[in-house]
C-alpha cells in the first residue's frame, strides 16, 4: 500500500462544476434512504465513496444518472438539471458513463457489438467510426483481441474492463463506478483497478463506490464516508485515513483496515 501511495500523482482539478447535488432526499416507500445530500463535484475530481453496506452510497451515484429517482432537492450534471423530462434524462445518461458490480454486459452481443451499440443508436455514429472508437478503447483496456468473443467467454476482470470500454465509447464527461471490483476474484481486481487508475490519470471525472482503500489513497482527491443515508465525513485521502474525525468513520476504518 505504501508503494502505491508513493506512486501517487498529483492531478489537476478544474473550477468547472461537473455535478451539483443540493439538498437531495430520497425515500423507498417510507424508508428515508438518502438524507440531505449536498455534493459538488468539479471536473477532473476522483471521488471515492465508502461506507457500510446499506448506507446509501450506491443509491447516491445511481441517482446521478437517474437509475433511481430522487424525491427532493436538485441534481445538476454539466449544467443540465435532472427532472422528469425524458429528454434531460437521456442527455445526462449519454454524458455519464457507469460501471456496475455485475458488469451488465449484453450477453447476446459480441464484445465489439457491446461497445458500438450505444454510439450507433444514441449518438448516431456511422458504424465504421463506432468500430474504430470501440477498438481504440478496447486497446486501452488491453483486450482488443477478444473483440469477436461473447461476454460469457471472458473472465470477470476482462468483462469489467469491457464494461469500462463500453462506457468510454460514449465519450462521457463523468464516470460512475458502483463497486466495480466487488464481484471479482482477488487475482482479477488489480487489472480492473489499473485500468481505473489509468483513466483517472488521464483526467476523467470519477465517482467510485468501492472498498479498495489502496485505490482511494493512490488516485482519489477526496474520500466521502456515508452512513445511514448521510454524508458523515469527507476529506483528502491522507487526512481521511490518518486522522478521521467522526466516531463512525473511525469504527468503519478500523473494521476494514483492521486485519
Amino acid at each position: 500500500m505504501s508503494e502505491q501511495a508513493t506512486a501517487r500523482k498529483e492531478l489537476a482539478v478544474s473550477d468547472e462544476v461537473a455535478i451539483d447535488i443540493r439538498g437531495m432526499n430520497k425515500w423507498y416507500g417510507t424508508f428515508h434512504v438518502l438524507r440531505d445530500i449536498n455534493l459538488t463535484v468539479y471536473q477532473g475530481e476522483r471521488i471515492v465513496i465508502c461506507g457500510p453496506s446499506g448506507s446509501g452510497k450506491s443509491t447516491l451515484i445511481r441517482c446521478i444518472n437517474a437509475l433511481e429517482e430522487h424525491q427532493k432537492g436538485s441534481i445538476e450534471v454539466d449544467g443540465t438539471k435532472l427532472t422528469n423530462d425524458l429528454k434531460n434524462i437521456d442527455k445526462i445518461r449519454s454524458e455519464v458513463g457507469m460501471c456496475f458490480q455485475h458488469f451488465n454486459l449484453f450477453p447476446h452481443l459480441t464484445i465489439l457489438e457491446n461497445c458500438t451499440l450505444a454510439p450507433i443508436w444514441v449518438r448516431k455514429e456511422p458504424k465504421k467510426q463506432a468500430i474504430e472508437t470501440a477498438m481504440h478503447f478496447l486497446e486501452k483496456v488491453k483486450i482488443p483481441d477478444q473483440a469477436k468473443k461473447y461476454p460469457g467467454q471472458l473472465s470477470g476482470g476482462q468483462q469489467q474492463r469491457v464494461a469500462i470500454a463500453r462506457s468510454l465509447c460514449m465519450k462521457p464527461r463523468v464516470m460512475l463506478f458502483d463497486e466495480p471490483t466487488s464481484a471479482l476474484d482477488p487475482e482479477m481486481i488489480k487489472e480492473v483497478l489499473d485500468t481505473m487508475i489509468e483513466l483517472a490519470e488521464e483526467g476523467m471525472t470519477m465517482l467510485c463506490v468501492t472498498h479498495e482503500m489502496g485505490f482511494a489513497r493512490q488516485v482519489a482527491n477526496r474520500v466521502i464516508f456515508m452512513d445511514q443515508g448521510q454524508i458523515v465525513e469527507q476529506n483528502e485521502p491522507e487526512a481521511f485515513f490518518n486522522n478521521p474525525q467522526s466516531d463512525r468513520t473511525k469504527l468503519f476504518l478500523s473494521q476494514i483496515l483492521g486485519h
Partner: peptide, 17 residues
Amino acid sequence: PKGQYEGGMSLGLSFWQ
C-alpha cells in the same frame, strides 16, 4: 436480469431501443 435494463439505460438508450 434488472442489470440488463440498467446497462441499457446507463448508456442512454431509449425504452424502445
